[in-house]
C-alpha cells in the first residue's frame, strides 16, 4: 500500500469512520475527490503498475448495499444468499484473483458509511423473514484490514442482534486479535482459504503462509467459533496432487478435521471477460494461460479434470476424517 496519498470523498471527509481510518495514515496527503469513481474508474490505468503503488480511497456507498450471490459461488444451502461490498479490491495480490479482471483499477476503496449497509441488511431480513446468508468479503479480505477499520467486529456485533442472519467472513489473514477478544456466535462463519505453500509462494504474494493461516484458524476454533476451510481455487498446476496432499496432511496434523464446520472446495473458474482482461494485464502468470474450457461463459478445467480434482481432494480429506461436510462448487 502506497501510504503517502489517500483519496477521500468530499462528502465523508468529516465522517468519524473516515477519521478513524486516516489515523493509520498519518503521513498521507489527503486528496479530496468528488466521487470514488473519479479515481477508481479513471481511464487508461495500468492494473499492475497501480497495484505496485496501491492507494486507499475512502468513500460513501449510496446504493447497492448487498447483491444476490453469483451462480459460480456456493450458496451453502441458503435460499437467500447475498454478498456485500464493504470494500473493493484487496491488499493481497493473488495471481488468480478475479478482481483483476472485474475492476479497471487496483486501488482499494473502503466504504465508511457502514451503518447504511447494516440498516439495509436489517431491512432485507425483515422483508424475507427467513434465514439470510451474507458473505462480507468476496471482493476484499476484511480481516486483513481490521486494524484500519473494524468491519468484522462491527458485523459480528450486528449478527448477534439478528437471529435470522448468518455472516461469512472469508480470509487468508492471520490477523485474529479482534476475533479473540469477542465471544463466539453461531451466526458467524469464519472461512479460511488455504493453499499449499508452493502455491502461496507462486500465486498468492503478500499473503500469510499456510502455517500462519492454520494456526490462526486453530486459535479461533479452540475459542468456539464456527470455522470453514475453503480450498478454493484448487489449481491444477504441475505437481498439484502432491501439493494438496501435503497441505491436507499438514492441516490434519494441526487440527481435528471433524472440529471444522465444513469444507468448501472449488476448482479454478473464471468469467470469460474477466479472464480475457486479466490475460491482457498480466502475462507473468501461467495460471491465466492454462488449458481451460468455456461453458456458460465461465472458463474452467475440463469436466474430466474437475472430477479428478474433486475426487482427489475428497479422498485426501476423508483419509483423516470420514464424517466431513464438504461443499463442492
Amino acid at each position: 500500500m502506497f501510504k503517502q496519498v489517500v483519496y477521500v470523498e468530499e462528502e465523508i471527509q468529516d465522517h468519524p469512520n473516515t477519521q478513524r481510518v486516516l489515523s493509520f495514515f498519518k503521513e498521507a496527503v489527503i486528496v479530496s475527490i468528488r466521487h470514488y469513481k473519479d479515481v477508481f474508474n479513471q481511464s487508461g490505468a495500468d492494473w499492475r503498475v497501480q497495484k505496485s503503488a496501491q492507494k486507499l480511497i475512502l468513500a460513501k456507498r449510496s446504493d447497492q448495499y448487498y447483491y444476490k450471490g453469483s451462480d459460480i459461488t456456493p450458496s451453502f444451502g441458503y435460499r437467500h444468499f447475498y454478498y456485500n461490498t464493504l470494500a473493493l479490491n484487496c491488499v493481497y495480490d493473488c495471481s488468480y484473483c478475479y478482481l483483476q479482471g472485474m475492476f479497471t483499477s487496483a486501488h482499494m476503496v473502503l466504504f465508511v458509511n457502514t451503518n447504511d449497509f447494516i440498516t439495509a441488511t436489517r431491512q432485507l431480513i425483515q422483508q424475507v423473514n427467513e434465514p439470510v446468508y451474507m458473505a462480507l468479503s468476496y471482493d476484499t479480505d476484511l480481516l486483513a484490514i481490521e486494524a484500519w477499520y473494524p468491519y468484522c467486529a462491527e458485523w459480528i456485533a450486528f449478527s448477534k442482534t439478528e437471529p435470522l442472519l448468518t455472516i461469512e467472513i472469508r480470509t487468508k489473514s492471520g490477523n485474529i486479535q479482534s476475533l479473540l477478544k469477542q465471544e463466539p456466535h453461531p451466526g458467524v462463519v469464519l472461512a479460511w482459504t488455504l493453499s499449499p505453500d508452493e502455491i502461496i509462494m507462486q500465486h498468492e504474494p503478500l499473503t500469510p503462509s499456510l502455517m500462519v493461516r492454520i494456526r490462526a484458524l486453530r486459535k479461533v476454533l479452540d475459542k468456539g467459533w464456527r470455522v470453514r476451510v475453503c480450498l478454493d481455487p484448487v489449481l491444477a498446476v504441475p505437481g498439484w496432487k502432491a501439493y494438496y496432499s501435503g497441505m491436507i496432511r499438514t492441516l490434519a496434523t494441526e487440527i481435528q478435521l471433524g472440529q471444522l464446520d465444513s469444507f468448501s472446495v472449488g476448482v479454478f473458474r473464471m468469467n470469460r471477460q474477466f479472464l480475457k482482461n486479466m490475460q491482457g494485464s498480466r502475462s507473468d502468470s501461467p495460471l491465466l494461460f492454462d488449458r481451460y474450457v468455456l461453458e456458460n461463459d465461465v472458463y474452467s478445467y475440463t469436466d474430466d479434470l474437475q472430477k479428478e480434482m474433486y475426487g482427489f481432494i475428497r479422498a485426501e480429506l476423508e483419509t483423516y476424517c470420514q464424517d466431513l461436510k464438504i461443499t463442492f462448487t
Binding site: V31, I33, Q42, A53
Partner: peptide, 11 residues
Amino acid sequence: RAFFPEVIRKS
C-alpha cells in the same frame, strides 16, 4: 473534472 496522476514512488 479532474485527472489523478499515478504517483508510484515516494517523491
